[in-house]
Structure formats: C-alpha cells, structure tokens
C-alpha cells in the first residue's frame, strides 16, 4: 500500500529501483511496535533503499521450480513425548517481571484503538 517499485529498465533480466518512502517506514514501525523521529525515518528509509536495491541482484537468479530452504539442514519429525515435567523455578520467571500483581504480569490499560 505504501510501497512503490519503479521499473527503470529491463533487458532480459528485470532490474527495479526500489523506493522506500518515509510512509513505508512509518507503516513498518507500527507493525514492529517502534516509533521514530523524523530524522530516523529519513535515515532508515535511505538505509533500506540501499539495502533492497543491492538485493535486487537476486532477480538475476532463475529460481523457477527451486524448493525454498527454511532450514540449514534437512531434518524432519522431531517430537517430544506427551509427558508432564513440572518446572520448579517459576519464581525466577516471575522475579523478572517489570511489574507483578497477584502472581501475574501487570500491564497498563489496553486502549481500544
């Protein structure tokens, strides 16, 4: 929705110039639960533009029919048995809570936004 891709030229390989706008960064910031100053928005849009334009070289590669790799090594069917092993240091988990109340993690009010 905020992303723009412009084709600069195309020979037998498609090369695009990727433009990352400040609006794009703002949208990504919302998805990422981050907020930025205007200057950061400028910097990040510039950085990401450079990086994605560098990565455009991937378009040179013919990947038709190539199976994507989600893992470094092939492995399958790794399971645990359905057995309860109680964890005995729950208090050490709770001790890390920034704010605890009634043995629960307390968070500020949730605004319906």
């Amino acid at each position: 929705m905020y992303f723009h891709i412009y084709a600069i030229h195309s020979s037998y390989v498609k090369i695009f110039f990727v433009m990352i706008t400040k609006e794009t960064i703002k949208h990504l910031a919302v998805l990422s639960r981050l907020e930025f100053t205007e200057k950061q928005l400028d910097n990040f849009s510039h950085d990401l533009e450079n990086i994605f334009n560098y990565a455009q070289m991937l378009n040179e590669v013919d990947t038709t029919g190539i199976i994507p790799s989600s893992h470094a090594m092939p492995l399958q069917n790794v399971f645990k048995e359905d057995r309860v092993i109680p964890y005995h240091n729950i208090e050490k988990i709770m001790a890390n809570a920034p704010l605890e109340e009634s043995h629960a993690f307390r968070v500020p009010k949730i605004l319906a936004d």
Partner: peptide
Amino acid sequence: KRRILIGNYVLSSGYYDAYYKKAQQVRTL
C-alpha cells in the same frame, strides 16, 4: 531497529514472494 524493519518489510504481504521466498530459493542453490 534497522534489521527489524528490513525483516518486517520482506515478510509483509505482497513482498514475501519477491524477497523472502526468493532468498530461500537462492539459499537452496
């Protein structure tokens, strides 16, 4: 933050295939 932004961009709907899936295919190569 920069890498979180990059990551969320390449996983966004509409960009997944062009970036993330493509990269995983090149990884296979």
